[in-house]
Design a protein around this nucleic acid. Structure first.
Lengths: 340, 340
DNA sequence: CTGTTAGCGCGTTCAC
DNA sequence: GTGAACGCGCTAACAG
């Protein structure tokens, strides 16, 4: 494939010399410009092939003023979001046309500033900021020379553009599904109440219940995002009120705990008890028994959309404002309806 | 922070003009060179601050011949490995000194070539290739102008440098731990037999058993890397032979399934039955009941080591050869020994 | 159609 | 101490 010559990568001049043309002509030939004779182009292409020429994107970026790179600045500690988002962005940009610097700030503001400076110094064409919770985060600021999109964690500055999943709607979807399955005594076990996600999912659920003229069968329980919490809370609720026929869980982890507790108590899921999770975290949802019905966020779509907005901004030099709430999807598996 | 001027990023010349010095002097002042008067330096620094100067790493990379970037070429579909590896690499390089292009080839050789060309075109100083299984993979080739390190998935070409976890040793560690816990009727439920990881973990285990003058209490069962398989296989084995007192699992997912099956059969873990997993995949291992003892791969360390080798190669222009098997660690939790 | 010139932003001589 | 000049690799603008 691409070889080196004399320990130094082949340059456009090497190609030009070998094809006995000027560097400018070689450049045109290689870039598919029309104003070059067919014979000349063939000679140049051959020469390029022979010396294993790989155009220097660094030099190109210097003249062009754009580098065709973007920065992905993340604080997503376990990497559940950022990889799909990256893949979506790669897709939208068109594989290989744009490359992505991935920087992990690890939730540290100082490290984030550090990475930000580095990205600007590298003259990225745009920046995608990914956070690990949906609570608004501090803006990177308005004075940046490149467009920025905030993903998952929205910016607290409404003049920035943010994409964040519609957790409220997710709560509604979950409840509507449970109601459609004929459940009437529904409870909620949610995650850490300090998270906007926990509050939003709950409030969407309450709204949907109210719209149906009903309410939760017990006070919603918020705790932490863990299986342990799901187990403990479910044990409590189910023993206290055996009539409960559905649990809406704030996350798939919690749902796994609930399923565990239900089995211990001899409750048959989904016949006696329906369970629905949140996140569509495949490793958890696909492997539970039965498989877990859940509400999912399409992170690849999130990445694609973010990339499209950036791409748009590259030309216009402008980017929209505000928080866009992106759709979430109900993924029906076996914990709400007997399947397979 | 970094502002723009006239819609264009401030350049060294802008700083120089404002400080009434030449660009050369400004450069020296900003780069901490000694041959510049203290007063001049102060003036330059002030000017740089005022115009929000951010040095153009692209231009710098062009002259320097090195870009202080590396490419991370991955096929790790669920991103379990690549993020920690990236973090480790960032650490080793020193945050912000080197930035990382993350490219996801998605297991597609064509896409990989595409990304490779792009990375070379961007003149990365080195490349880290991450695969999602420990089976040897095709080499990127010897003719590359930059050093390459293969991580997790080793290169099939022994002249390349590869870092891959020592799965055989992991199997030994698991068995030695079970033996130390006084277990004598041990069985194995492993993952997909087409994976080297499945075979290596098994053979390490068999070796350790043989060294202790014993063997598995039943024919090892290899299947797939899923909880479902773990449950099914465990149910089969435990019903067939109630004397079994320990299960070495090929992965944490499998172990979760085994724990599930054990509870269904009324077996008390760890008293009646010890269970040990593999991977130390926290979301699974920390949330099982009891928490899962497992053998873990330190991916951050893998990333650090890879980065150190690359860093070393940047100067020397040479990189070692061969497959380095990196240490794995036993992480004892509650499924082998009563804890907390 | 092709070649010459110039410049992107920076760092590095080497005179002064 | 400081600045003028040059080059990194490439492309846009012009001249031939």
């Amino acid at each position: 494939m691409s070889t080196e010559r004399n320990g130094r990568a082949a340059t456009l001049n090497d190609v030009a010399q070998r094809a006995r043309v000027s560097a400018a002509t070689a450049s045109k030939a290689l870039n598919g410009r029309t104003d070059v004779a067919a014979a000349t182009r063939a000679r140049v292409l051959a020469a390029a092939e022979e010396v294993g020429f790989t155009p220097n994107a660094v030099a190109r970026g210097l003249t062009a003023g754009r580098t065709s790179t973007v920065g992905l600045l993340t604080s997503d500690l376990d990497g559940r979001f950022v990889l799909p988002i990256l893949m979506g962005a790669e897709d939208a940009f068109g594989a290989g046309r744009i490359d992505v610097f991935l920087c992990d700030a690890r939730g540290d503001a100082v490290r984030e500033q550090h990475h930000l400076r580095a990205l600007l110094s590298r003259r990225v064409d745009g920046i995608i900021v990914v956070g690990d919770r949906t609570d608004p985060r501090r803006s990177l600021g308005r004075a940046l020379p490149v467009p920025v999109v905030y993903v998952y964690a929205p910016s607290s500055d409404p003049r920035d553009l943010s994409l964040t999943p519609d957790n409220v709607e997710g709560g509604r979807l979950a409840i509507r599904h449970l109601l459609a399955c004929g459940r009437s005594r529904i409870v909620h076990i949610g995650g850490d109440p300090s998270y906007a996600a926990a509050q939003d999912r709950l409030s969407g659920a309450q709204e949907a219940l109210a719209a149906a003229g009903t309410a939760f069968a017990a006070e919603p329980m918020l705790g932490e995002w863990s299986e342990h919490w799901g187990r403990a809370a479910a044990a409590l609720l189910l023993e206290r009120d055996p009539e409960i026929d559905a649990v809406f869980c704030g996350s798939d982890q919690i749902a796994r705990g609930v399923l565990d507790a239900a089995r211990d108590l001899g409750r048959d899921v989904p016949r006696d008890l329906a369970v629905i999770g949140f996140d569509n975290w495949t490793v958890l949802a696909e492997n539970s028994r039965p498989r877990l019905t859940t509400v999912g966020v399409d992170f690849e779509a999130l990445g694609r959309t973010a990339a499209q907005h950036l791409f748009h901004a590259f030309d216009d030099n402008g980017i929209e404002s505000g928080v866009l709430h992106t759709p979430v999807q109900l993924v029906v598996r076996g914990t709400t309806i007997p399947v397979g």
